[in-house]
Each structure stands twice: as C-alpha cells, then as structure tokens.
Amino acid sequence: METLSIIIPVYNEEETINIFYETLNKVEFNQSIGLELWFIDDGSKDHSLMELKKLSEKDSRVHYVSFSRNFGKEAALFAGLERASGDYVAVMDVDLQDPPELLPKMLDEIKENDYDSVATMRKDRDGESKIRSFFARKFYKWMNKITSLKLVDGARDFRIMTRQMTDSVLKMRENKRFSKGLFNWVGFDTHYLAYENRERVAGKTSWSFWGLMKYAIEGFISFSTAPLTLVTSVGAFSFVLSLIGAVVVIVRAIFFPHTSTFGWPSLVVIILFFSGIQLLSLGIVGRYIAEIYMEVKDRPIYLVKEEK
C-alpha cells in the first residue's frame, strides 16, 4: 500500500483543526492509499496543541510537532517535509482554503500522467482586498521578470509531490526559506489545477499585509541579485552625470566667467537626491549582507518542544 503524507502547518487554529479533520475524513481516497497526517504547531498561543493531542489519541494516523515558539510557516513546512515518510507528500493549510476533496484528483493526475508534482492555483481573488490583490499580481510579475523562476499567478502552497521531489526540496536547508520559489527551483514536472477561491472556514488569518510584504522581499532576496544590479547601474549613471556636470562647470568658468551660478536651493536638492541614492544603495546591500549573516550563523530552522 502506498502512503500519502499530508503536512498541515498550524498557528492559533483551534477553531479550524477539528473542522479540517472531519472534512478530510469525508474524502474518498483509493483503497490502495494510506494516510499519514503531520500537524505542525508553530508555537500557537491558543489551545491548538490540546486539540492536536486529542486527535492523535483517537487516530493513529495523526502526528503532531509543537515548536518551542513561533518560527513561521516556512519552518513548519520544512519540519513536516523532514518527517513525512509517504510515497507522496502533500502540503496544505488547515483553514480549508485548500480543498481536501481535490487530493484524490491530484493523486490521480500524478499517477496517470507521470507528473512529479500537482499543484493548485486560484482562478480568481474573490474575497480579497483590491490593494492586496494588486500587490500580489505585481509580485508574481516582477518575480518572473528578475529571477529565473516562473511562478504562476495565484499559485498556492497546496500541492502533492513525489518522494523524489520531496527529497530534492529537503536538500536545500537555507534558514530564510521561500517555498514557492524552492518548489519551482528544483525543477521536476509540475501540473497546476485551478479552483475557485475559498474563504477561511473559521478564525482569522495570521498573515497581515506587512507580513506578506516582508515575505515577498524574502522571495526577491532569495532568488535574485537584480536589486544589487540596479544599485550598480544607478551608481554608474550618477558617476557619468557627475563627470558631465564637472565638464559643464569647468567650461562655464573658463568661457563664461560672468554668468550666474545656481543658488543654494538647487545645491540642497542635489545633495538630498544623491544622499538618498546612497542610503537606498546601502540599504539594499545591507539587506543581502544581513541574509548572509543569518545563514552563516547556521542556527536551526526550528526547535521542537514536543512531538508525537
């Protein structure tokens, strides 16, 4: 019998855990497929861990890992991937925005068409704020332009992977993780299934707008050096402008000594402009140095408090 391991990150989701479990139990899988559930409690402050312990006691297929604190969804996904032992590995959210009823179809797609992964994407962004949708679309657009990745707009983390692809993702142990990029970077043949966007079944999302912005920046830094190239280009352009300006000043002083010069307001504007460029450049370079700093520390991606 083949096994499907399902990884479910959890953070303050006491209201959704049992709803998810009951919904998953109603899904009709092929009899030749066994299930293994890994709930990863990412340092929840509510009673999520208590609910997971109850499920684990009544169902031997249910396992849980509880972190010592909140390490983030990426760390939770990695912890689940490390523990999943199935022939196929799925990652999905507990809030039912990722429909469990799609799992059998996704498995069939992998087996029948010899895919390495079947992932999901939203057909639309109904229910999402316009500002958030706008920035999300721009993120995918620019990621595809400045990196070698080809991310699908609306793609979810919800996917099923073969054992080979899962092992390949596990080989990348960087501290600052961006799973959408990692799943894409390893290659392998991935097929996307589209479905209608769904709202959370209960509770509130832990992802704020600024949290998503920070996550997007991590993606850019992890998979592209384009910002550094931009800084270099701006520096070169500024240098050329300064040379032209120097020539103009010298020629003007020699041939037009009596002409008026720019006043101090113009000088202040110029100073502020180039100072701003310098600070922006230092910030971008510093962001990359900070990433290097965090990686060379070689701290663990997560710490486990208890596990079953």
Rank of each mutant, 00 (worst) to 15 (best):
L4K: 02
I7K: 02
N12P: 02
E13M: 04
I17N: 04
I17H: 04
N25M: 12
N25T: 11
E28G: 10
K53W: 01
L55Y: 07
D59C: 07
H63E: 02
V65E: 01
V65K: 01
G72H: 02
G72C: 03
L81W: 02
E82Q: 13
A84I: 04
S85D: 14
G86W: 01
L102D: 03
E109C: 13
E128A: 11
K130I: 13
F134I: 13
R137V: 08
M143G: 09
V152T: 12
M161T: 13
L170Q: 05
R173V: 06
R173S: 09
E174D: 15
E174T: 15
N175R: 13
N184T: 06
G187P: 11
H191V: 07
E196C: 05
R198H: 08
V201I: 15
V201A: 12
T205G: 08
S206I: 07
S206F: 08
Y215G: 01
I217H: 08
I221H: 01
S224N: 11
T225C: 10
F237Y: 14
S238E: 10
L241I: 11
S242N: 13
V247L: 07
V248G: 10
I250L: 15
I250P: 08
I254V: 15
I254M: 07
S260I: 11
T261Q: 12
F262V: 13
V269Q: 09
I271D: 06
L279G: 07
Y288C: 01
I289K: 11
I292K: 13
E295S: 00
E306D: 08
K308M: 05
K308F: 07
